[in-house]
Write a protein that binds this DNA or RNA. Structure first.
Lengths: 252, 252
DNA sequence: AGCTGGTTTATAGCATACAGTCGGCGAGAT
DNA sequence: ATCTCGCCGACTGTATGCTATAAACCAGCT
């Protein structure tokens, strides 16, 4: 290994990318400029999806070579994707053993749901504080989409509308950090929830309607409370269905 | 590229690691068994530390080769560490350009602090619900350590005691998911906060003392409220000091 | 002088190669 | 037969090599 002192500038002699701060801002501010996403991104998405819809089951050992071959890439992008998957709670990386799909526990599910309640109710509270008519109109649109899916008994559309509605409330909160955390938690909640439950249906959408009215009238306190109760009921429903599933299995 | 259909078992023919679930649990349950941490972990820690204490400044371009050489490893572990650093908000990875130290903004700092308030107050509330005398005693110990550091005017010890106290409250909450999120947020808060402020000192520790009493008496509601106010004041102090710093800069 | 195009080169992304480690299996001992 | 020890293969962890790309440079033009 070369023996540079830690602090010595490595004297690459070459040119070095300018810092973003150095950018000449007098030019037309160039937008983020869509660059081709690296392979590892696609790999990440692919693996996450496989985990979510149970093609890869909890506890399963993810062998890098297999994933690489399956996806038609080398091990490198796979390993990088696994890093991200770990820090987002999808897999556990055990030194020298490799990656294992995270095994959900009852305890963790409950804590995720509790945390979700906290985060979502705060986002509703913030959303109500400065809601604009346009934003509220968008919420009502999503509500109508949900109602329609409900009467059509279209589960997929129902789930989509539900996610979109919650996501819009979150974005209305204006707090991006909060939004990030919610995205993280919600995705895992859905993973836990998926195998045992359909969405709560009619009841949930009545609660949505109420919530939207509170947001529209900028009643932040009640909006927050409603969202808390709404997500609490989801949590109860989770435990209920979970218990039923356990009983079915016991009989089974 | 080999042409397996996606779903076909790749028929490695070889043996495959047993799933953790398969383990023979009749034998003495083996503890996690400390394995040597991979290099990437050390690399992650090293880079994170450099970012936190400003050896790597916001916006700076992290060149993989340089980091690898500096740390005496190859590029591979560096790349993997950068993946994790990205998903935890320390660096931004731009396709084909590489890693740049995340540039903190005023807005983000405020949102981080607001989110921290939410999470910490919830953890205090939960901690108070089922506090045991032993846990409370530990809190009092940490409080005494803080008071001592205060009278000794020992900044480092003060910061350490403060972190330890908050961490213990979080662990008392019993919600690991919440704890994870707090760890994530707090670490970034400290990063933003560090360059412009020392801890609030005497005032903060008085608030701690009050909080501990509420936790001891299992008054979850007031414990939560106190923590909220406590972190809110930290937030105000942040903005105050930030403004002062900006003014100094304008003059200087 | 300032813009504009091609050229150069540092550097990220990906693939491949190598080495160390862990777990299972079987041969030999008891 | 059961237990122990060492071998063996699979797999991870790490290093290195190759390629594509994007930014800085520079020459020539306006």
């Amino acid at each position: 290994m070369t023996e540079w002192a830690g602090s010595v500038a490595p004297a690459t002699g070459g040119r070095r990318r300018r810092l973003p701060a150095d950018r000449d801002e007098t030019r037309a501010a160039r937008q983020p400029l869509e660059r081709p996403a690296p392979l590892r991104q696609a790999v990440y998405d692919a693996i996450a999806e496989m985990i979510i819809n149970r093609e890869l089951r909890p506890g399963e050992h993810l062998v890098e070579n297999e994933l690489a071959a399956q996806l038609g890439v080398s091990r490198q992008p796979v390993r990088e994707a696994l890093q991200r998957l770990q820090s987002e709670g999808w897999v556990d990386l055990r030194p020298a053993l490799g990656a294992f799909v995270h095994v959900p526990t009852e305890e963790e599910a409950d804590q995720l749901l509790a945390t979700r309640t906290l985060l979502e109710s705060e986002s509703a509270r913030l959303a109500a504080r400065n809601s604009t008519p346009e934003q509220v109109e968008r919420l009502r649109e999503l509500q109508r989409a949900g109602e329609k899916a409900l009467s059509d008994d279209d589960q997929a559309a129902l789930v989509a509308a539900n996610a979109a509605l919650h996501a819009h409330v979150v974005s209305m909160s204006g707090n991006k950090v909060l939004a990030e955390l919610i995205a993280l938690v919600d995705r895992r909640v859905r993973w836990y929830y998926a195998p045992i439950a359909r969405s709560r249906g009619r009841e949930a959408w009545n609660e949505h309607a109420e919530l939207i009215e509170m947001i529209a009238s900028r009643n932040s306190r009640r909006a927050g409370d409603l969202m808390r109760r709404h997500t609490e009921r989801t949590r109860e429903s989770y435990h209920q269905r979970r218990k039923e599933a356990a009983e079915r299995e016991a009989l089974g």
